[in-house]
Design a binder for these strands. Structure first.
Lengths: 194, 194
DNA sequence: GTCTATATCGGGATAGAC
DNA sequence: GTCTATCCCGATATAGAC
């Protein structure tokens, strides 16, 4: 490992996250990203082929993080209620821990070139399908109230994702408190056990 | 009224809505907006002072639309349950009718210059406070389950807003069906009457 | 691996004719 | 009210020295 604890590649990526989240992909000049990373703009090209590659790496890394963790939960738990509880906790924990990164994932899809967009959207699609599988299974096993699985999955994902836009680590609520509130809203309300 | 049913000012704005929604504010060239409106880029400056003014007008118009309609509902109904039902219908109806416009409102806040951003955010704040007032009143009058009013308002607004990203007029569900599903999710679940 | 210098392009905005 | 022509700037990306 490097003495500073982060390679230049990682420093550049961290700077890009900060700039993309604050100003948006198109409005964030490569020069500013370089300045924050402590180098010149041209030096970025030694580590990444172009600006788009920074965006793709940020999005891919974090969509994979989300999917990997959800797969792990499905492998760990069999009960639909436990699965959904853990899925909510996982989603909110990642979206608050990597607040800027997921904010970028959620607002810069349009900035991706066609092939990259298709790739990232396929990862998002995988995630949605896993959530829908939990819901469908729970409804079939009469653990959840019946309903439109697709729309309910969108509603759950939307409300848990949006936490990344307002959550502040030094705010009124801790991550764990936010998770408990959303579990109550979703499981104790929306899908109230029969 | 003009023979074509739309003034050039309106045509330019409609073109801007289309371009901003598809490519994002920064990625949408003024020249393309002009082309769709059927004029040259320079001619836009006869109708608007600059590009930013287009974005501000789109956002302001639609945030006011949302607020005006909600005020009307509060004036019309006194019962918290009726108020919330109507508020959900209003939110989703406007977000599907003006799908592109609200998608812009929800994704281009960062593209606003500081003073414009403060103005639009104050309109959004007003809206959130009205929704929270409905919830608080309903909880006090024991029509809704108690809960964290702020977080619940964010959850409701987030899930209803996100409809604008996936709704298709020629899709599986009509606007009215979507509204009914969300009313069921929110009122029949999340805030289940005691 | 990072630098300086620069190529190249496309963007918003302006001037002034018609 | 719309045009053509153009200014001016800042952006990504490249070339080549160190």
């Amino acid at each position: 490992m490097h003495p500073e604890g982060a390679s230049m590649r990682e420093q550049i990526l961290a700077a890009a996250v900060q700039m993309f989240a604050e100003y948006g992909y198109h409005a964030a000049p490569l020069r500013d990203i370089a300045r924050i990373a402590g180098i010149q703009a041209a030096s970025i090209y030694h580590h990444y082929p172009n600006k788009q590659a920074l965006l793709v790496e940020i999005m891919e890394t974090h969509m994979l993080r989300l999917n990997t963790a959800l797969h792990h939960i499905l492998h760990e738990y069999a009960d639909p209620l436990q699965r959904l509880r853990e899925a909510i906790g996982n989603h909110i924990r990642l979206h608050t821990t990597y607040k800027n990164e997921f904010f970028i994932v959620d607002t810069e899809i349009r900035a991706l070139e066609p092939e990259n967009r298709a790739h990232i959207l396929s990862l998002r699609d995988t995630y949605e399908k896993l959530i829908q599988e939990i819901l469908r299974d729970g409804i079939e096993r009469k653990v959840f109230q019946p309903g439109d699985v697709k729309v309910i999955s969108y509603a759950i994902i939307a409300m848990c994702t949006e936490v990344a836009t307002w959550f502040r680590p030094d705010g009124r609520l801790s991550v764990q408190q936010v998770i408990e509130i959303y579990r109550q809203i979703i499981i104790g309300g929306l899908l109230a056990t029969l």
